[in-house]
């Protein structure tokens, strides 16, 4: 089945099985390997991508459902100022997520801080509980999210 969609801002087309999962298409057909696939069951968060601007688990998405839709992976997101808000904050406090969590956490933090209000601890804990993570410091992570929010606020992005 031929599926046209937008991937990281470019129109792409792929001829594949309709039930092939988006995560496998991204990794195997487009070579975008930063997004991971750890559980195939929607539980770990490592396969997160943006679909029409919202974070979704790419392992739960057969490719036929993305026809004519916009997908942004972490590779596409890395070229944005929004990414810098987050990565600079986590860099400053020396708490960059490891490759297993990187994609899911960065995109989930973006979706949280775009909410136009300072994320409180319970928001951040809810985000953490949505991601299977065994190697992060909770208190550092909370600090990182708050700094990322302030970076974005400082840039004036939240006022737009």
């Amino acid at each position: 089945m031929k599926i046209d969609f937008s991937l990281n801002g470019k129109k792409v087309s792929i001829d594949t099985l309709p039930e092939k999962r988006l995560i496998d298409v991204i990794r195997e057909d487009f070579g975008l390997m930063t997004t991971k696939n750890a559980c195939y069951s929607g539980e770990c968060g490592s396969c997160t991508v943006q679909l029409e601007g919202r974070i979704v688990p790419a392992c739960q998405i057969p490719i036929f459902t993305v026809r004519a839709k916009r997908i942004v992976t972490i590779e596409g997101f890395m070229g944005t100022e929004k990414y810098l808000d987050i990565i600079n904050a986590f860099n400053d406090i020396k708490c960059i997520p490891c490759p297993f969590c990187f994609t899911g956490k960065i995109l989930a933090v973006d979706s949280l801080i775009d909410n136009h209000r300072t994320p409180d601890t319970s928001d951040i804990m809810a985000l953490l509980s949505d991601h299977s993570c065994s190697c992060t410091s909770v208190s550092k992570f909370i600090e990182g999210v708050r700094m990322a929010y302030h970076n974005r606020e400082f840039r004036g992005e939240l006022l737009k």
Partner: peptide
Amino acid sequence: YAGGTGILASKNTKYPELPGNIIYLR
């Protein structure tokens, strides 16, 4: 087929086996 999270959650193989015809509701 709506969101598919109920359908796929019970099929964690690489290629989820789906019936011959799918009506996508979304």
